[in-house]
Lab assay of single mutants.
Amino acid sequence: EPSQADLDALLSAVRDNRLSIEQAVTLLTPSSGGGSGGGSMDAKEILTRFKDGGLDRAAAQALLAGRTPA
């Protein structure tokens, strides 16, 4: 399960175009075949909204942490 520091680094990389959204989703869902963790939004949607400015960093982190299976 990614830590808050991992999520923060991942969000920074996506925002700075050092990591594509697809690459980030793969890192967030290493063994689930890329499927959502059952959250209301999947990781790709969360990351896309964050990059487009629709979500701030704290909200994106909380959503990603919340949808990651324990």
Rank of each mutant, 00 (worst) to 15 (best):
G66C: 12
R49W: 05
V25W: 04
A43W: 06
A9E: 11
K51G: 02
L55M: 06
A60H: 00
P69F: 04
A43N: 05
D6K: 09
G53I: 01
E22Y: 05
A24D: 00
L10Q: 00
V14F: 04
D42R: 13
P2G: 12
A58E: 12
G34M: 12
Q4D: 12
D56S: 10
P69M: 10
L64Q: 01
S3M: 08
S40W: 14
Q23M: 09
G35D: 11
G53D: 03
L28V: 04
K51A: 04
L55E: 01
T68N: 10
T48D: 03
D56Q: 04
T68F: 15
S36P: 11
R67N: 11
T68A: 09
N17W: 03
L64C: 01
F50A: 01
T26W: 10
L55I: 13
G38R: 09
L19M: 10
E22G: 05
A65L: 14
E1K: 10
I21Y: 01
V14T: 01
A65N: 08
A58N: 07
I21A: 02
L47K: 00
I21P: 03
L55P: 00
S31A: 11
L10P: 00
D42W: 14
Q4E: 14
G54P: 02
R15C: 09
G33D: 11
A13E: 03
R49Q: 06
G33C: 14
T48H: 05
Q4P: 14
A5T: 14
A24R: 00
K51L: 06
L64W: 02
P2H: 14
L55D: 01
G34V: 12
L64G: 01
A5D: 08
L19P: 00
S40T: 15
M41W: 12
E45G: 06
S31G: 08
L55A: 01
N17E: 08
L27M: 12
S3D: 09
P30E: 10
N17F: 04
S12M: 08
G35Q: 08
L11R: 00
S31V: 06
F50S: 00
L7P: 02
G39P: 11
F50Q: 00
A62G: 04
L7F: 07
R15H: 06
A65D: 04
G34K: 09
T48C: 06
P69I: 15
A9H: 07
K51D: 01
A60I: 03
A70Y: 02
L7Q: 02
F50N: 00
G38C: 15
G66N: 11
Q61L: 15
T48Q: 13
L47H: 00
F50L: 02
S40H: 12
A9R: 10
S36A: 13
L7V: 08
G54R: 15
L7T: 04
K51T: 02
K51W: 03
A13V: 02
A13L: 07
L27D: 02
S40Y: 14
S40D: 10
K44H: 12
D56R: 03
A60W: 01
R18N: 06
L64K: 00
V25D: 02
P30N: 14
S31L: 14
D52P: 01
P69L: 11
S32C: 13
A24F: 02
L63Y: 04
D42Y: 12
T29V: 12
N17P: 01
P2L: 15
L11K: 00
E1D: 12
E45P: 02
F50K: 00
I46Q: 01
K44C: 06
R18A: 07
T29D: 10
T29M: 10
A65H: 05
R49A: 07
Q61H: 09
L63S: 03
Q23C: 15
L19K: 02
T29C: 08
S36Q: 12
V25S: 04
G39D: 11
